[in-house]
């Protein structure tokens, strides 16, 4: 009959109206500042530096100041100064560390190239997006203290990727330990034995070697002066 469609339509809106009060599942709106916004696991915006421990982030940075990311960064928003001294990394090997590591996130374009090129899994993409500041120069230039976040945080925001990275790191450490043990057990044949080609870094074995440039520790070369990006 004429008009039955109108009644059906009114019933649908009435059902939604009543339902929105007693069934919170219906409300798709997130009351944002009170309820934290949920982001997808693959969401990424700006890079951060991974440290092994939350208690001593500056002492346990994975970064060895190789400056690959600084050179690869398309908008040149990374500025690194190497340390003078060395200190042991997670495997006990002596490494350099960044005395200065700045990222100007007002310049960063979130391309993730720094993450792609890092042979040490030391820089990863963050999900923290509430970055509005009232000072547009200094507040958006993040220092290494602000950039450093523990591995547990990485697990929290990107669980899948963090698990893969941890597995690769563990595998590399195991191989390095096995090689060292084999070397110690059979000193004479070990000299001609095929030492792992990737022994120079603990990672190259685990990751696709083609995509990785040789780490600078293995191929030292003259470092050009840091680009005059932001001398602050």
């Amino acid at each position: 009959m004429l008009g039955s469609g109108l009644i059906k339509g009114l019933a649908v809106t009435a059902k939604n109206f009543v339902g929105s009060f007693h069934d919170p599942e219906r409300l798709v709106t997130l009351e944002y500042p009170e309820q934290p916004a949920k982001v997808a696991e693959n969401y990424r915006n700006f890079p951060f530096l991974v440290s092994e421990s939350a208690d001593d982030p500056m002492g346990t940075l994975r970064c060895v100041a190789c400056q690959i990311c600084e050179k690869e960064c398309p908008p040149q928003c990374i500025y690194i100064e190497k340390s003078k001294a060395k200190k042991p990394d997670a495997n006990g090997k002596l490494q350099l560390f960044p005395a200065v590591f700045d990222i100007d996130i007002s310049v960063c374009m979130s391309c993730q190239i720094c993450v792609e090129v890092c042979p040490f899994d030391a820089i990863k993409m963050d999900q923290h997006f509430e970055i509005a500041e009232s000072d547009r120069f200094n507040a958006l230039l993040l220092r290494r203290e602000q950039l450093a976040k523990p591995n547990s945080y990485f697990h929290q925001i990107h669980p899948t990727e963090a698990a893969q990275v941890d597995a690769m790191l563990a595998e590399a450490a195991r191989k390095a330990a096995a090689a060292a043990a084999a070397k110690a057990a059979a000193p004479k044949p070990a000299a001609s034995a095929p030492a792992p080609a990737a022994g120079s870094t603990r990672l190259a074995a685990a990751q696709s070697p083609a995509a990785r440039p040789a780490p600078p520790a293995a191929a030292p070369r003259t470092e050009p002066a840091p680009p005059p990006s932001n001398p602050a």
Partner: peptide, 13 residues
């Protein structure tokens, strides 16, 4: 607010 509720939104609050 009523329009919002019909559309399963909280409306201006």
């Amino acid at each position: 607010k009523l329009l919002g509720r019909v559309q399963n939104r909280p409306g201006p609050n």
